[in-house]
Simulated assay, not measured.
Amino acid sequence: MPGRTVVGVYRFLLTPRWWGINVFTLLAIPFCLFMGSWQLSRFQDRVQEDRTQTRQIATNAHESPKPLDSLLPVDKGTSGKRTTVSGHYGKQLLVPGRQLDDKDGYYVLTLLRTDTGKALPVVRGWLPGTADASKAPAAPAGEVTVTGVLQASETPGDNGVSAQGGLPAGQTAAISSASLVNLVPYRLYDAWITLDQADAGMRTVPATAPADSGLDLRAFQNLGYTGEWFVFAGFVVFMWFRLLRREVETARDAALGIEPAEQPVVTVS
């Protein structure tokens, strides 16, 4: 049986069962590699985006502020830009549960009513401790011109923004037109700013990167998925060789007339 070593032993590869196994393997491996490469490219894009944002922040800090209307609507390109707005301060709210330098505190948010008939939420500064309206400095009276960094409306659940409800009157969990529309009697811009320099007695709130950008949790999820897909590809190859080896051994034993060992039967008395 000299010819049986190659032809006979591997004849099982032509059976319908092994055709299915081979087709699945040939499709699964490139699919896993493609998905892993795609997830890796997403992570690399976010790394490049983070570098671009870092350079952009440095550039924005030295740019002259631009009129608000020229920067709207807020997107990844305009978020972080400096803007200047004139108007009269109106209703004031507190935004609890905000940290600065790992210390708990709250933002002092005041609505700036502009000549356009809309109001712009302005974060005038940060104070430590539990939100307390009696400790928040009153906004300047009369017409003011403020300069700050433009930010997109927050979405509860993103960037650590709280989604809690049932806050006391005069407080809001998120700085967004959707959250504020029922709290203030003004039409609102779908944006807000944090002042370049906080008002007296408060600390300046730094600008944040736009949601779903840069090296955030989702970026590292992309990196984790990259590893998973490549592991899946390796697992498919491993299982194919394992099945092949077992089938070859079974075929050779059958060719030599060796019966497969029977599994012992366990009886319960």
Rank of each mutant, 00 (worst) to 15 (best):
D158V: 09
G170A: 12
Q171V: 08
L167G: 06
V181T: 14
G234L: 14
G201M: 02
A209F: 04
Q164P: 01
A200Y: 00
T204Q: 07
W229V: 06
V181S: 15
W192Y: 15
A198E: 08
T208Y: 07
A191H: 00
Y189T: 11
G224Y: 08
N222D: 15
V205F: 03
D158Y: 05
Q171N: 10
E154M: 02
A174H: 01
A209Q: 05
E154T: 01
S162P: 09
V231M: 14
P156I: 12
G166C: 07
G160H: 09
L167R: 12
V161Q: 07
T194A: 12
D199N: 09
D199F: 03
L167C: 12
S177K: 13
S213D: 08
N159Q: 14
V205Y: 02
G166M: 11
S177P: 01
G157Q: 09
A233G: 14
Y225V: 12
A169R: 14
T155C: 02
A174T: 09
V184T: 08
G234D: 09
P168H: 04
P206Y: 04
E228P: 00
S179W: 03
A163S: 15
A173F: 06
T155S: 06
G227L: 12
F230C: 07
L223G: 02
V184W: 05
G227K: 06
E154A: 05
G157I: 12
S177Q: 13
G201F: 01
L215K: 02
M202C: 05
S213F: 02
L167K: 10
T204A: 10
F238T: 13
V181N: 13
R218A: 14
V161W: 03
L215W: 02
G160M: 07
D216C: 01
L183P: 04
L180K: 08
F220I: 06
Y225D: 09
W229N: 10
P168R: 00
S177T: 13
P210R: 03
G166A: 09
T204F: 05
A200Q: 10
A207F: 08
E228I: 15
Y186W: 03
T208R: 14
T204W: 07
Q171Y: 11
L180D: 05
R218D: 08
L215Y: 03
Q164H: 14
P206R: 03
S176V: 11
Q221H: 05
L223S: 09
R187E: 15
G157F: 08
G157H: 08
D190P: 01
A200W: 01
L167W: 13
D216S: 06
D199T: 05
N159Y: 01
T208W: 02
A174G: 12
V181K: 15
Q197V: 12
L195G: 00
L180T: 10
L180Q: 08
A200N: 09
G165S: 14
S176N: 08
A211P: 00
R187V: 06
F220G: 11
L195F: 00
P156K: 09
